[in-house]
Nucleic acid binder design. Structure first.
Length: 274
DNA sequence: TTAAATTCCTGTAAGC
DNA sequence: TGCTTACAGGAATTTA
């Protein structure tokens, strides 16, 4: 599933390809994928716009337009944002196609349709709570271990659920939450508020390391994730615990535990993580 | 405010 | 082989 490293990879690839292009045509094939404004207004407002800088916030892609408008893309579970030539065969579950003035197309594809597209001014999207409040970027140098510590203090929910809470830190999903807890040698099911400062510092470093390595390897293609050219990433080949329940821990050799936290599969080592 | 449960959605894999 | 069923989970929404 697309998390911070996967979204960052797509954003880095697409940025130079989209900057300065004009949207000549908008083909909205599955209107419900647009969450704001009404689909008709979405198409009308987007057509003819010039594309500006593309950035990322958490798992959201933010594409600035020439008017003070933002095209927001969230990939959900199975979303793909593909930059292709029009001759490329149209695959099933393609919900939106933007035809650009250089003859290329930007296609949004999403099998499970958990993703979403939004269009509006920043004030409009944030003010109307179409976009949720997001916590700090975990790979931002200004985000320190002590910040994480304060955000976990007083919370009784299992640590992993807070890592997945986008209001606590932005961009972490199931894969990198499990990977970070293992690297930090902390149990994901511990009450978050009881994590000591040294352990929080380890977790903070592990979050950064896991996410930065994921970006370096162009993301984890565990299931559907591909980059803007349709190519898989490599991070799934070096994951330490995610999806490996029952298999031997790479560090101690004992079978990894698989439990359910907040309805999500969680894998960790009962020996190496405390 | 926090936390837990529910909902959305379909390809895949397991079970019979 | 072919059918049914469980499962994967991000985040909005609902409920406590």
């Amino acid at each position: 599933m697309p998390e911070l490293p996967e979204v960052e990879t797509i954003v880095q690839d697409l940025r130079p390809l989209l900057q300065g292009r004009r949207v000549d045509r908008v083909d909205l094939r599955f209107p419900a994928i647009v969450r704001h404004p009404e689909p008709e207004a979405f198409v009308r407002e987007l057509r003819g716009r010039r594309l500006g800088p593309l950035t990322r916030r958490g798992k959201y892609m933010l594409l600035e337009l020439d008017a003070p408008l933002l095209l927001v893309v969230h990939l959900g579970m199975t979303g793909q944002l593909l930059h292709v030539v029009p001759e490329e065969p149209l695959r099933a579950h393609t919900h939106a196609i933007l035809s650009l003035d250089d003859g290329t197309e930007l296609r949004y594809r999403d099998v499970r349709r958990f993703g979403r597209l939004l269009l509006g001014s920043e004030a409009e999207l944030v003010g109307s709570r179409k976009l949720p409040k997001l916590g700090p970027e975990p790979i931002d140098p200004d985000f320190k271990a002590v910040d994480l510590y304060h955000r976990l203090q007083g919370r009784k929910a299992p640590l992993k659920l807070l890592l997945l809470d986008q209001a606590v830190v932005a961009g972490v999903g199931n894969i990198y939450a499990d990977e970070s807890c293992f690297r930090a040698r902390v149990r994901p099911d511990r009450p978050a508020g009881r994590l000591s400062r040294p352990r929080t510092a380890r977790l903070h470093a592990a979050l950064r390391d896991s996410l930065l390595e994921g970006i370096l390897n162009r993301g984890s293609s565990v299931a559907d994730y591909v980059d803007a050219r349709g190519a898989k990433g490599r991070q799934q080949e070096v994951l330490l615990v995610y999806g490996r329940g029952g298999e031997p821990c790479f560090k101690c050799g004992r079978p990894l535990a698989a439990i359910r936290l907040g309805g999500r599969m969680t894998v960790f080592c009962r020996t190496c993580q405390r």
